[in-house]
Nucleic acid binder design. Structure first.
Lengths: 341, 341
DNA sequence: TACATAATTGAAAGCGCTTTGGATGCCACT
DNA sequence: AGTGGCATCCAAAGCGCTTTCAATTATGTA
């Protein structure tokens, strides 16, 4: 069943039927009723491809999913997607996901944009001086960046959390507890959030005349295995750190295992603060020693970005271009006074 | 730049240019070269919407992502998606993801199918007597089911792992180690894999004249929190089970925490076997007590399903309709002889 | 040389929708 | 009766591609 058939069935023109369906005002209410009734009876659905060709709108937002043989799938990605989805489903939007090799993201993004399959783009996993920004700017397609790109002019639409502030505050808390030996367990070095979190730690330490030793910093994928390895390394240092800052509860999972294996007690021998993306899988409050965290819901960010993206496509009012969310510092049992030596 | 402009530029007809681009044999090689060259220079990309309208093919596979406010995002889902993606990217396919309320999956799937946005469907989270099967059959669109639907005629295309066999084997191993008190920590009751795994346990036990007590079975979302709760419950039973079968390493994570908190030793007081989907996040071999598991890579399943789906759309040879993968039973330290009372 | 055959290319008809630019009829008002 | 304004509706022109059918030229064969 297509428009033509439907309109013949009704004895109307395609024009009128189309207008009736799309809520145009210049159609008689009685006629509209008839059309709607016929749609119900025949089960007519407009052909999306045709609609898209005619209007240029696709009703979808695009994103690139980094993936490759051997590439770790990322829990954080799934959670974020759920947030986007939650909002999209309210507006009858869908996603087009372009899987791409992580080394090929710029090209993949461009391909996605000019594929005509999407109305707007969502971009994540931002890096310092991210080359995608220039490309996006040249694209004349709405987009929102999740995160920011350290070193680039912040004149693009983004939603980010205050990573630097979060880790600054967390570090200050530990300083107040008397800690002087710090270690930072971070995400991959080139990623923006990792850079900012590091800066947050460094600047809080600097205020007390302290520095972050080179060996007290790890950059790795945020898996529990990497957390274990990094912590094992820290624990072997001659001047063992007593205060650990951790970029994810997933890393913390492994880190804590290492702490336990070394026979140390979390919250006493070692204090640890992790950033909590509010993954349903890992609740910091139900760790055996509940975790002190900086919290910001990844999912909520997904919802918000979807709102902005879809809103822009539907031209539903202006949205703030830049949003920076504060995180919450939630103190639980994994932090305590620095041990006395 | 569109086809018309490009063809005028080349002094050729749209027909010839189109054929040159799509690899038709009846075009002069020299001409094809010229066209390809011009494409490179102009950066011409065919409009997908038009292509789709003309051919009816979208170059994409569709899937429904269960999501709702408060709905747990599922690590397993992300991992599976990565597998699909890995294969899709090799064929320049993408996904269209339709987020939908879990209660609305049948309707969402139908909407997706008739939206004309996809060439094939992937379906997961199968339930017993799943109502989606009948719908899919009526659809005349290729699809592959991940899992099966207990109680339905198995005449649909699927890829599944031998859940019953896996848990049968695991249970037998524990029986051989002398265990007599079993508990099963399962996924949501209505899901097919949960039903089959339960059956596997029950039939292995039945061979020894044993039964699975009602209180020794839990059905819940596969998160570590649920694992903790279920295990705490098991440990309070008057006849405490010594052998635990667990539907996911994620559940096991919480379960083990409960075991530790109760001051019991894994592999001695309590033996545990978990099913391992090979999540990069959770490696059973790096648990503090390495986990005995039944293993089958979720990601590999994703790759394979994508192969079948894309292959079918491209009409690249026939594929087996039903595939049932065996799991591996990998013995590590979390299983040991039944304790003597 | 004449004719069948193969190799290349093109014109034009869709694919199913939206939207522009009129029609048409009806009414109120001069 | 003449005019302008409304409310409705429609024919037809795209949107940018693929594909059928046909035309043209080159090649080979009798």
């Amino acid at each position: 069943m297509n428009l033509k058939q439907l309109s013949e069935l009704l004895g109307l023109s395609q024009t009128t039927v189309s207008r009736a369906l799309n809520g145009y005002p210049e159609v008689n209410e009685a006629t509209r009723e008839r059309v709607l009734q016929a749609v119900k009876e025949t089960g007519y659905r407009p052909n999306k491809a045709a609609q898209r060709l005619a209007t240029g709108k696709a009703g979808s937002i695009g994103l690139v999913m980094p993936t490759a043989p051997g590439h770790q799938s990322d829990v954080h990605f799934g959670e974020f997607l759920a947030g986007l989805g939650e909002e999209a489903v309210r507006h009858d939007f869908h996603f087009v996901i372009m899987p791409a090799d992580p080394d090929d993201e710029v090209a993949a993004l461009r391909r996605l944009a000019i594929s005509g399959n999407v109305d707007a783009l969502f971009v994540a996993y931002m890096r310092g001086h991210d080359p995608r920004l220039a490309m996006l700017r040249s694209l004349s397609m709405p987009y929102v960046v999740h995160g920011r790109s350290f070193g680039s002019e912040p004149d693009y639409p983004y939603l980010d959390i205050d990573n630097e502030g979060a880790f600054y505050d967390a570090t200050r808390l530990l300083l107040q507890l008397g800690h002087t030996r710090f270690a930072l367990m971070n995400g991959p070095m080139h990623l923006d959030f990792a850079i900012r979190r590091k800066n947050g730690v460094i600047s809080a330490l600097a205020e007390r005349g302290l520095a972050l030793e080179e060996g007290c910093m790890s950059h790795a994928l945020m898996t529990d295995e990497q957390g274990l390895l990094a912590m094992e390394h820290f624990l072997q240092l001659p001047e063992r750190p007593t205060a650990i800052l951790c970029s994810s509860t997933v890393l913390a999972l492994g880190a804590i295992r290492a702490v336990n294996q070394a026979g140390l007690r979390l919250g006493e021998d070692i204090s640890l603060i992790a950033h909590d993306d509010v993954l349903p899988l890992l609740k910091p409050e139900s760790f055996s020693v509940p975790l002190t965290t900086t919290r910001s819901s990844l999912r909520a960010a997904g919802v918000r970005i979807a709102q902005r993206l879809i809103g822009t496509v539907k031209q539903a009012g202006p949205f703030p271009d830049q949003e920076l969310w504060k995180t919450e510092l939630i103190v639980r049992a994994s932090t305590g006074p620095a041990p006395k030596f």
